[in-house]
Design a protein around this nucleic acid. Structure first.
Lengths: 145, 145
DNA sequence: TGTCAAATGATAATGATTATCATGACAATG
DNA sequence: CATTGTCATGATAATCATTATCATTTGACA
């Protein structure tokens, strides 16, 4: 935990941003909820518990900043809100998601399943891939009875 | 064109919806811009040319209806708006997208590249896939010089 | 023709996100 | 130290896409 915060701090400094207490509190919330897919409002509520004076705008700004630095990814599952998902450290690709149409759960797939597909796309469409988003919609193992 | 409209009409009727003039005008716009990824506002502007009395709400309602019937797909590329993309007739999967980070162009891949990946996901995660979304972000062939 | 449900258009309401702006923290400088 | 300047913050207003409301219209059918 502390090491990860330290690395994020360095990353901020390298772009001459500071790790203010508000930003640190926000990052901690994200780390403590790594498996969730929190909206800005969700993050705001959780940060308020440890830093009650924080404002919603600051949370939005921090999340935007972290997105810029590729510490988190901003994703959208089609309900009207953006969600923020911590990137795996050192991962060279963005993980995939399984969205259950039954119960709404969102599970993650950390493995990179797109290696071959990406080769084909790069070659056949002459497209230089920088990132990808892959989401499957269906019925999760819990709801399959 | 006329045949496709006819089939959409039948599809609507099968769920006891009507193909009203407003809905038909909207569908025509979508067919005429099959390669684009129009927002609701875009569609509204274009429909107004052939049906000036139409209201924005009706366009939204029609797009929602068409999404429900799986005639179109509602997609989101991370700018703040939903876009509507006509499904290929008879396609059992939703096509993929290539979003250029340089020029913003959105190209489509109609081929299904995920067959093998889906088999793995179904088996290993015990997840019953109903649909998928796959978008690559990178540099398109036009911007690669 | 009269009836009724569905559809429409105008517009108000909502809700997420962004912009604004005065204030505060803090580092660098004189 | 006092001063200056920059960046960050918090409160709140503004924006913008989307949804809800509601009176009116349409068209099918009795």
């Amino acid at each position: 935990m502390e090491q990860r915060i330290d690395r994020i701090k360095k990353q901020l400094h390298s772009q001459s941003y500071k790790l203010t207490p508000q930003r640190e509190a926000t990052v901690r919330v994200l780390l403590e909820h790594e498996d969730d897919h929190l909206s800005a409002e969700d993050v705001y509520m959780l940060v308020k518990e440890k830093y009650p004076e924080i404002g919603l705008a600051t949370v939005y700004r921090t999340l935007e900043l972290l997105t810029e630095l590729k510490v988190v990814d901003k994703i959208n599952f089609g309900d009207g809100v953006s969600r923020y998902d911590l990137r795996q450290e050192g991962a060279d690709h963005f993980h995939h998601h399984l969205v259950c149409l039954e119960c709404g759960a969102v599970d993650e797939i950390q493995e990179d399943l797109l290696g071959d597909v990406e080769k084909i796309v790069e070659k056949r469409w002459n497209f230089e891939i920088k990132d990808h988003r892959l989401t499957f919609h269906g019925i999760c193992y819990r709801c399959r009875t």
